[in-house]
Design a protein around this nucleic acid. Structure first.
Length: 218
DNA sequence: TAGGCCATCTGGTCCT
DNA sequence: AGGACCAGATGGCCTA
């Protein structure tokens, strides 16, 4: 990062400026009317060639100055863009941090990584909506009894998956039609993801669906 | 020490 | 034109 900047600095307009200024200073230092300090071609000392030379050098100097200005402008734009990008990523991280605070966490857990947070949140939301959906189903089943208490959903999400089966498949007594979280399958090559972090029953940090359902105890 | 995670820089692309 | 967004590259830090 800083090395990049140092590279940029080394190739910055200073090079052009210095190169240009050297020739300029020599030009300015020497009297316009004399050829002192101009070792080249003492024979061709005519005013015409001298003015052509001057014009060429002025053009070169102007071009170098333009290049230097363009370079400075580009660099300033880059610096500003970097600053914006940094702020953007910071705000993204802030949002991620806010998301972490509303997810179930345990004291002995280290901070969730970004990808873990997203997958966990996805599955958490899915679990909560499943809870609502199943509770609603059960409530309708018991609607004949007006005074029936609201039953907790009869979820059995911690059923051990059979070997070779999808470790993230959920089993529920009433949720056969529901779809499992799409992020359950490990798509990342990271060990954490391969351990199905974010899937409630087999993740490396032992999160379980039970932790999401207050009052549920097994 | 390798691998994972992260912050940052950077150039490209799209949008306003 | 300038900002937002994105993905790739790079280097630092941490952990198994």
């Amino acid at each position: 990062m800083e090395t990049v900047y140092s590279d940029m600095d080394s190739s910055s307009c200073d090079y052009f400026m210095q190169d240009d200024e050297d020739s300029c200073s020599s030009m300015h230092a020497s009297s316009p009317s004399s050829s002192i300090g101009k070792p080249a071609s003492p024979a061709s000392d005519s005013q015409g060639s001298c003015s052509t030379d001057l014009a060429q050098k002025k053009r070169r100097r102007g071009r170098a100055r333009n290049e230097a200005t363009v370079h400075v402008v580009k660099k300033n734009r880059r610096v500003k863009a970097n600053d914006r990008e940094r702020n953007r990523m910071h705000s993204l991280n802030d949002a991620l941090e806010t998301l972490r605070t509303v997810l179930p966490a345990f004291p002995d857990d280290s901070k969730l990584t970004k990808i873990e947070t997203l997958r966990f949140a996805h599955n958490y939301i899915w679990a909560l909506s499943e809870t609502i959906r199943i509770a609603d189903i059960e409530q309708r089943q018991n609607k004949s009894r007006a005074d029936a208490p609201l039953l907790l959903p009869n979820l059995r999400v911690m059923d051990a998956p059979s070997p070779g089966s999808d470790a993230c498949s959920w089993s529920s007594s009433a949720s056969s039609s529901s779809s499992s979280p799409s992020y359950c399958t490990s798509s990342s090559s990271s060990p954490a993801a391969q351990n199905d972090y974010g899937c409630f029953q087999t993740d490396v940090r032992q999160y379980s669906y039970h932790n999401f359902v207050p009052g549920m105890s097994y």
